[in-house]
Each structure stands twice: as C-alpha cells, then as structure tokens.
Design a protein around this nucleic acid. Structure first.
Lengths: 111, 111
DNA sequence: AGAGTATAGGTAGACATGCGAGGTATATTA
DNA sequence: TAATATACCTCGCATGTCTACCTATACTCT
C-alpha cells in the first residue's frame, strides 16, 4: 500500500488543466496523463476530479471542446484554450504566486 | 471596491495557524492579526474561518486552549501547540513544499 | 473465442473547508 | 453615550475534490 497521498490543494486544479492546454488541444484522459508525467507522478488526477473540472472550465468559457479521433483510434473530446481562458490562466498564475509568496512569509518566521 | 481578494487556498489555514502558535501561546484574535501582519495584509482572516479552524485543531489535539487575561485586560482563549501538533505542522509543511514543487514543475513547462 | 488491461468518457454522493452574515460582550476613547 | 477595537461564537452556503461506480472500445494474451 502506498502511504503517499497526493491530494491537491483545492483551487489549483483549474490552473493546472488550463496550463496543460496551452500546449495545444488535448483530450481529458491525456491531460491527466500529462499532469502525472510532468509532476513526476506526484499528482495522480482522479477521473472524478478531472471530468467535472473540464465541464466546469468549458461552462465558464475557458476551454472549448471538440470530438476527434485520438492517435489510438478512439473518440476523444479535445479541449483547447479560449482567449478568455488564456487570460484566466494568467490571472490564476499571478494569484498563485502572490499566494505562495504570502504563505512563504509566514512559514519563514523564525521559531 | 477593492479588486483584491485574499482568499486562501483551502487546506492551508491549519498550517498557517499552527505555524503562528510555534511562537508561543496566543489567542485567536491575535492569530488573525499576526497572519495579517506577517503576510503584509495579503491574508485577512475572517472570523467565520478562524474560530471553526481553532476548534477543529483543538479537537484533533494539535492545539490546547486555556483562558487567560490578555494584555488589554480582556478574557482570551490562548492556544498553544501540543507535541503532536508540532509533528502535524512539520508534516503539513513538508507536504506543502512537495506540492508547490509539483505545481511549479507544471507551471514551468514551456509554451 | 474469451479474458484482461488500457484508453476514453461519464455521474452521484459524501466530505471538508473557507466565507459571509449574523450574534454576544467588554474596554477604551471621543 | 456613542463609536470603535477587541474577543468570542454559530449557522448555512458555495465550492471543489474524492471515492465509488458505470459505460464503451481497442488491443493483447491465452
């Protein structure tokens, strides 16, 4: 049994997904794989987190979806970043950086 | 209207509170002030977040509470870190660092 | 032919947590 | 005496992730 649990911080998933789609249209399953690979298996994105998140991002107009055939010959829903999705991503990254900076200030206080 | 919103990431509040209590016993209201000061006003901790979190941390045995009189002459509930609270804090900090590291890997991917 | 695995999509319900809005009370200051 | 800061609290909501479950297709192995 793995004693490691890779729960992600609530609020970061959208940013990660949007960031992955910057690289070009990609289907949901592929997004999960990419996130896992790039994070060196730290994040193991569950499908119950992934798909609701994708629908949420699509509803908000940050991603648009299109059915295509994958390299493996199956149907896949390919997501690509919209213009406002790109702005949203930039905004989320800025917020993330300010936020981790503020957390760092607190964690750096000497004992 | 302020366009700045200082919502914190869900999951970080416990860590921040525990970290503040490392410096010595402190009451809830003071914790909120410290967090705000140290983060240079970035975090403005709401009381509806603060007090439930303190009760949660006490229930889990990470903090213990004691009523005392504050410097201003009022009754205050002073929280101090327990032994397992200190271990919990270390564990949360490690997790935070691994997590932000993994996020950084994804954000660093070139466009 | 059949079983198992990887790929690809999805939903429903539980759960945790932070927030907004409201409340109480005391001490200090104007 | 009114306002403000200090100090505590609770309730209900919104959000978001997870677990568990479901469907279907393509490929590989037996």
């Amino acid at each position: 049994m793995g004693e490691e649990r890779a729960e992600l911080l609530k609020g970061t998933l959208d940013m990660l997904i949007l960031k992955i789609t910057v690289l070009g249209p990609i289907h949901g399953y592929g997004i999960a794989q990419r996130i896992q690979q790039i994070s060196r298996d730290f994040f193991q994105l569950q499908q119950g987190s992934l798909y609701p998140a994708l629908h949420r991002l699509e509803d908000r107009g940050w991603l648009k979806a299109e059915w295509k055939v994958t390299e493996t010959g199956r149907e896949g829903k390919f997501y690509s970043l919209t213009r406002i999705g790109r702005k949203q991503l930039q905004s989320e990254i800025e917020n993330w950086e300010r936020l981790t900076g503020a957390v760092a200030l607190i964690l750096q206080t000497a004992e």
